[in-house]
Design a protein around this nucleic acid. Structure first.
Lengths: 205, 205
DNA sequence: AACAAACTATCACAAGCGTGATATAAAAGT
DNA sequence: ACTTTTATATCACGCTTGTGATAGTTTGTT
């Protein structure tokens, strides 16, 4: 006999509702009441699962981190070995991996949007600082790993300082995502891909 | 005989107070009351100069745009002709110009911080959208001009698509600034310079 | 059937917000 | 000297916020 309400599922629904509110109206307008309304829940019910606002926000950001890192891990997994690939294929693979961090479809656009709002909020909100730090460290690790793989496969120019290149590519991806989210009429998803391709191409040439 | 209060000066003081609040506590906490307190003004006085909150915010963002663009213009002016410079000097000059958009000292750090908060807010605040768009277009124009100058001086590799490179460098600078402001323990001002130097160096090599 | 746990639903409170209205004080213009 | 802007200062209203407290309802267990 299935439980009438699955608390895990409920929390997921609430977090999804929070994300929708953040994407639509910004983190600023994501109050307990608006999130509850979006989730079609009574505030009392919502507070049964999240006692305080801080708890909800931290849980939401943690969920987002888990989702994205799972997807990144899966993408790296699926990428598999790159020994059998041509130089061009390797670069294209790297583009696809980095593209997981760019707003190339609705889901990723929502993720980058939420990430941006959370990240800026974390600057002055102590309750979110450590999580934002984890995100920053995580993306650097991911980007660094992509570069390492390319280097190990001999797909990169020699003489590159990988720490600098990691910082460079991380900033590039973050900046592209931010600009594409904030100014979609100026920077499209295709533009993001073009830029990343140009960048990786330059690292290889 | 000097006027007892110079309204222009008063507005500047209020805007400075607003910026201090934004840097310290975030745009979210910059209410009419907190800004008035920071400016050591009564809220009634503040509202004599800015009737509504929207008026204050738009005026503040406009002021920031003017200040920064004046400084950029002055920097380009001071840069002068680059015909007489060596290739290395030209790149270093470009680094200094782009560095005006990076948090390399207190003033620029404050500017980038305020810019970041305003930009993210503008995504969902119709009152700020057009101004954010102007900022985005303006920085692209500035970055593009730097690249054009370098190209005209023969300091760049041939075969570069300048539109893509403009987008790439703009995103890089924005991303660097954002990361340096949000994660100063991860990205220092020196790191920003290293990355920009590496980037321009790669465009030249 | 009885009990405990989980869940849903309201109410109330203090705090902060933007803003309209208004009153007093100071300066400028005539 | 008188009047008119300009500036400073309060009060009040309606609204939203997070949160504590509490009651009712449903579900699962004994």
């Amino acid at each position: 006999m299935p439980k009438v309400v699955d608390p895990v599922e409920r929390r997921r629904e609430v977090v999804d509702a929070l994300f929708r509110v953040v994407v639509r109206d910004g983190l600023q307008r994501a109050s307990l009441r608006t999130v509850a309304a979006e989730a079609r829940l009574n505030i009392g019910s919502l507070r049964h699962y999240f006692a305080t606002q801080e708890e909800l926000m931290r849980f939401a950001m943690t969920s987002m981190i888990e989702r994205v890192s799972e997807r990144l891990l899966a993408a790296v997994e699926e990428a598999g070995d790159l020994a059998a690939l041509s130089a061009e294929e390797r670069l294209e693979l790297a583009v696809r991996l980095l593209g997981e961090l760019l707003p190339l479809d609705g889901r990723r656009r929502a993720e980058v949007t939420v990430f941006l709002d959370f990240a800026t909020a974390s600057r002055t909100d102590p309750a979110l600082r450590d999580l934002a730090g984890r995100v920053a460290v995580g993306t650097r690790a991911f980007v660094g790993r992509v570069l390492e793989r390319l280097e190990a496969g001999g797909a990169l120019r020699r003489g590159l300082r990988l720490d600098v290149e990691t910082e460079r590519l991380s900033a590039l991806v973050d900046g592209l995502g931010m600009n594409a989210v904030l100014h979609p009429e100026l920077v499209s998803g295709q533009d993001c891909l073009d830029v990343v391709r140009a960048h990786l191409g330059a690292l290889a040439a």
